[in-house]
Amino acid sequence: MFLNFLNLVFLDSAFPVIFILVLFAVLNYRQIPLNSIFRFILIFFLITLLFRVLFYMHMDAKYNARYLYTLTLFFIIFSVIGFSEMGEFLQKYISKKIPVLTITRIKIFLILIIGVSCIGKALSSPDYKSYLKEIIQIIRNSEKKTLLIFDETKDCARIAYHAGVECFTFESILDKDLKSLDYALSTIERKGIKTFVLVEKSDNDFKNFFKERKTRFPLKLIKEFKEKHICFSLYEYDVDYDSKLIY
């Protein structure tokens, strides 16, 4: 359970390179002045960490790494103490073998390595949830002005907001058994309101959902979007299906 928490602290809050420097600072604890300022910063770290752990234990939803970013300030302050220690440590083992590498040069190389890795990480992977962009583009480029979503998830609501369409949940206009979905959709479509249907499920799962309830499936798949464990399926009303209906 705490492995995930420690992973977030190590990878996101501290960042591995900075964390290694903090470990060296722990080894070099004699350099840390035990004055009032240090005590304040230490209490800040301990109390913040304590509250984050308690929050983590009592939270049902996904725990975001950004909740731990206040600890980053602490890690940065103490990583610099480890920096000089790490330079001396490397000097002991490297300078004997390669005399050209003096302590100053080792420190400059260290700064360059840390800088490149941090800037690389900071600017990499800009496409955060790239499927959102794709779905929003598809909805924006069409003339349809309504989005029907299966569950009221945050992702769906934000897609509707950025695509500039009105969004309704299934539950708000239909019964829970979905028996009236085909009728409701065909009525909406005949009024001239073109509707998308968005579900946070794979296409197969959503079709099985209808099969289990012995309900007809009046939708046509536009595209299935997958990224890591998240899967979205975007549908529109099947026009051919409408002609088969008898009222």
Partner: peptide, 26 residues
């Protein structure tokens, strides 16, 4: 903070550098 705590300007500059480029903060 680092200049006041450690009284060393070079380490304080290093902390400022880390604060500027830390991926999570950026």
């Amino acid at each position: 903070i680092v200049k006041t705590l450690l009284k060393r300007a070079d380490l304080a500059l290093l902390a400022a550098f880390f604060g500027a480029i830390h991926p999570s903060l950026v």
